[in-house]
Design a protein around this nucleic acid. Sequence first.
DNA 1: CCTTGAACCTGGGCGC
DNA 2: TGCGCCCAGGTTCAAG
Length: 296
Amino acid sequence: MPELPEVETVRRGLAPVMEGAVIARAELRRPDLRFPFPAGFAEALAGRRVISLGRRAKYLLIDLDGGDVVIAHLGMSGSFRVAGPRDETVPGEFHVPRGKDERHDHVVLHLETPGGPQRVIYNDPRRFGFMDLARREGLSEHPYLRELGIEPTGNALDAAYLAARLRGRSQPLKAALLDQKTIAGLGNIYVCEALWRAHLSPERAAGTLVTAAGKPRRELLTLTDAIRAVIADAIEAGGSTLRDHIRADGSLGYFQHSFSVYDREGEACRTPGCGGTVNRIVQSGRSTFRCVACQK
DNA sequence: CCTTGAACCTGGGCGC
DNA sequence: TGCGCCCAGGTTCAAG
């Protein structure tokens, strides 16, 4: 679910609560998410102080004193929320079935913070998320992180990098950009949006944006700018709130109101003067939204 | 090596 | 109201 802007929004929401706090106890309410929690996971977290919260691509990184780092991926439906201390329960009280949401609270971090006890709760109905533990040293060589491409934030991403990555590839642009080894953190929404902004067809062979000499064509410069802009805009808007995804503080991101093509099948293309209609196709099993009239 | 498709899960929306 | 089908922000395997 969450793409880079959503994970970054989660990171920013959790940081004020978690950084400097001590994890008194990590409560695992089931043995696995998508994969089993690693052996000794809860024990490794207990008593550790959170140094900082980081992010790489769509992974949240919880840096602990002692040198361990929690690597967390939210899958399609994962979310974190902050709650106060556990509600008091009355002994002997009739057991009230938990609400639908709480059934999917799989991990509870019980924190001691300067402001008192807090809980950070990971909820994930589909359980496509996963968590692992790694050492800070050599973190970038962890199997989940090792092959990730460049971040689309800041100044790191440029057309020369993309040219080198896309050169000679016959794969559709959509698939190439979705590949985390190309650009780390793009997902279905932001790839569709970036291609629309750049007026490029998701079906274009990726290699056609590169000259025979390996130089980026003008279109690739446009695409590079579009990717950086859409990610920056989405982060600034606090990400997108779709369906049940909420931010750590319970508020809603609002970038979904800025979608130009994603989930807008049948609607008018927003490119000024275009007059086309957004349609939906399926590429490698996933929906692509685009305007045939202006995306070439 | 490359690419596609299925699998992993639950829940919401829709048509009948 | 109920049932079946399709769809959903991602990643990892297996197979071609």
